[in-house]
Design a protein around this nucleic acid. Structure first.
Length: 292
DNA sequence: TTCCAGGTATGCA
DNA sequence: TGCATACCTGGA
């Protein structure tokens, strides 16, 4: 482990607040100075915006540049994507302006799988608390700048938890789902670490085999850990914003013979309208609507 | 006290 | 297949 620093000069489309509070991650916390600190794999990172630069300080096991380039998706041109999305849509123009600093993180697939199972019918403060307690109990402790941090437990580490242990950590009815999913991963029933090389349809089908993983959770996993931007997770917020903004257009779809505003029709409309960037469109609209 | 939160699993017709 | 209902928990 080594202290390191990485400065991104004049970087476009990178606002720590937008990235860490748009709902894609649960392990980043704002500090008193406005920076954010989070645990990424076995590394601790602190991200601060200063004028047009992003200053990333880290306590890392690997080269901080490699870690950040991958994790923050620095190769992708978000400006271009935003331009394309807002080209002929006033709502996306407004929402991409509102969340202009959003980037989709490439998070660990295993951590994302468990985190979003926990997210079901839950609220963000509680989700964060549960994940923190799981990490403190089963993860690895790292000390940095006089503070204690905990890595998210590996598959082997979390396999030490019984259902009752998870219940004590506050998972509620999600305890058995996390336990059973952990067991399936541990026994390699589905190799989640090799999934991302397949197309979204195939991956969706595989992820749905895990207990606690439905369409919404599966799509979030693909979007937030595999850079599958063509998926479109539909939750209460997205449903709300889509109906508020696009009801007329969804009614008029030629596939929508009965004029129904069902999740299927919302999905068809989104895939058709947003194409390969549907996931990003979802994230801009979600963040915009939720922060209003 | 009651309701709700980035849904999913289950039991029925 | 298609639809309602229950589900831990803690904060408002």
């Amino acid at each position: 482990m080594k202290e390191q620093e990485y400065v991104l000069e004049d970087i476009d489309s990178f606002e720590p607040k937008d990235i860490f509070e748009c709902g894609q991650c649960f392990r980043w916390n704002e500090e008193e100075d406005g920076s954010f600190t989070g645990v990424v794999g076995k590394n601790i990172l602190n991200v601060k915006k200063y004028k047009d630069n992003i200053i990333i300080k880290g306590y890392c096991s690997d080269d901080i540049k490699n870690i950040c380039n991958k994790y923050f998706d620095l190769e992708t041109d978000y400006r271009k994507i935003k331009e394309e999305l807002s080209k002929d849509d006033k709502f996306l123009k407004e929402s991409t302006e509102f969340g202009k600093g959003i980037r989709i993180l490439k998070q660990d697939i295993w951590e994302t799988l468990i985190s979003f199972i926990i997210s079901a019918n839950n609220n963000i403060p509680r989700i964060k608390g549960i994940i923190e307690r799981i990490s403190a109990k089963y993860g690895e402790e790292i000390n940095w700048n006089g503070k204690k941090y905990y890595t998210f437990p590996t598959v082997d580490e979390l396999s030490n938890a019984e259902v009752e242990d998870l219940r004590k950590l506050g998972l509620g009815f999600r305890d058995k789902r996390v336990y059973d999913t952990t067991k399936m991963v541990k026994e390699n029933k589905i190799n989640i670490f090799e999934l991302e090389k397949n197309d979204s349809k195939y991956i969706l089908n595989e992820l749905l085999k895990f207990p606690g993983v439905g369409p919404k959770v599966a799509n979030c996993i693909m979007l937030f850990s595999m850079k599958k931007f063509d998926v479109f997770p539909i939750d209460v917020w997205v449903k709300r914003v889509m109906l508020e903004l696009y009801s007329e257009e969804i009614y008029k779809m030629k596939e929508n013979e009965n004029g129904e505003l069902t999740p299927e029709n919302i999905l068809k409309f989104a895939e058709n309208k947003f194409g390969n960037q549907a996931g990003l469109a979802q994230q801009y609209l979600f963040y915009w609507r939720r922060e209003q």
